[in-house]
Simulated assay, not measured.
Amino acid sequence: MTDPTPQLRPPRHQVSRSAIRYWTVHAALRWAVVLVGAGMLAASTQVGATAEVAGLITLAVVAVAHTIVMPRWRYAVHRWETTPEAVYTQAGWFTQERRIAPVSRIQTVDSERGPLEQLFELATVTVTTASAKGPLRIAGLDAATAERLVDELTAVAQAAPGDAT
């Protein structure tokens, strides 16, 4: 007899390859705001020009490295999977987290597409459960997959016995 309890394991599916471009642009935009702010602050201070320039160059190098490395690393790590019994997720880049939510614990399933995600035809699916740990988020899905996933999880959760608490 097999154990019906889902076991924590690596999920099978990667997110959309477009997530790499999305995460790259998202990081670049955030770093641009930081660099402009730092440049304005440096221009308004009385510190020597050499220290200001060195600080801005260091910040720019960190920004470029983060913008190049982080999206590819996240893509290599981020995974998801659904089965009739559970939803599996794996996310992060420095700190990596694997989570599992039994279908019987699902309370809501949502999809979100911010303006930048819409540009890249991506979506984030959020599965809210009765867990104190919080919802499971699957970011970087192509929009069509996200829509199918929301429909599938909603149907499976409605069919599951109990009240998801």
Rank of each mutant, 00 (worst) to 15 (best):
I20M: 06
D163T: 07
A19P: 03
G92D: 02
P102N: 02
R79E: 02
H13S: 10
V34I: 07
E121C: 08
A91M: 09
H26N: 14
T124H: 07
T83Y: 00
H78P: 06
G114A: 00
Y88W: 01
T2G: 05
S16V: 03
V64M: 08
I68E: 01
H13F: 12
I100P: 06
F120G: 09
T45I: 04
A19E: 06
A54K: 10
G162I: 08
A130K: 06
A132M: 12
T128G: 09
R148N: 15
S16T: 02
A54C: 06
I100K: 01
Q96M: 09
T128N: 13
A130W: 10
P84L: 05
Q118P: 01
L8E: 09
R105E: 03
T108V: 02
S16Q: 07
V62L: 13
L136P: 00
A27G: 13
T129V: 06
T83M: 08
A130S: 13
L56C: 10
P6W: 09
G162M: 10
A130D: 06
V33P: 09
W73F: 00
L119H: 11
G55A: 08
D142H: 08
L59G: 12
A28W: 06
V47Y: 14
A123Q: 07
R72T: 01
W23Q: 04
H78W: 15
I106Q: 01
I100W: 01
F120T: 06
R105S: 04
V87W: 06
H26L: 15
T45H: 00
F120L: 04
Q14T: 15
G37K: 11
F120A: 03
R12V: 12
R21D: 14
T5M: 07
P161A: 15
T128M: 09
G92R: 05
A101V: 12
A157S: 14
Y75N: 02
P71G: 03
L116N: 10
V15Q: 08
M1S: 10
L35H: 09
R21N: 14
V87N: 04
L141I: 10
I138S: 09
A32G: 13
R99F: 05
P84M: 03
P115R: 08
E147Q: 15
P6N: 04
E97H: 14
A143Q: 13
L116Y: 08
K133G: 13
T124V: 07
V36Y: 03
R21V: 10
S104G: 08
L119E: 02
A76W: 05
V25C: 00
V15R: 09
L8H: 09
T165K: 15
S44I: 01
H66L: 14
T95Y: 10
G55R: 06
T58N: 03
W31G: 00
T2L: 14
Q158Y: 06
Y75W: 08
H78N: 14
A49P: 11
A42Q: 11
T83A: 02
E121D: 14
G37L: 14
Q96Y: 07
A43G: 14
F94I: 15
V33S: 04
V36R: 01
P84D: 13
R79M: 03
T145S: 15
A65S: 03
L41Q: 02
S111C: 06
E147N: 15
Q90F: 05
E152V: 11
R79W: 04
V156T: 10
E147L: 13
L122S: 13
L56T: 01
V15G: 05
D110I: 01
R98S: 11
V53S: 14
Q90M: 11
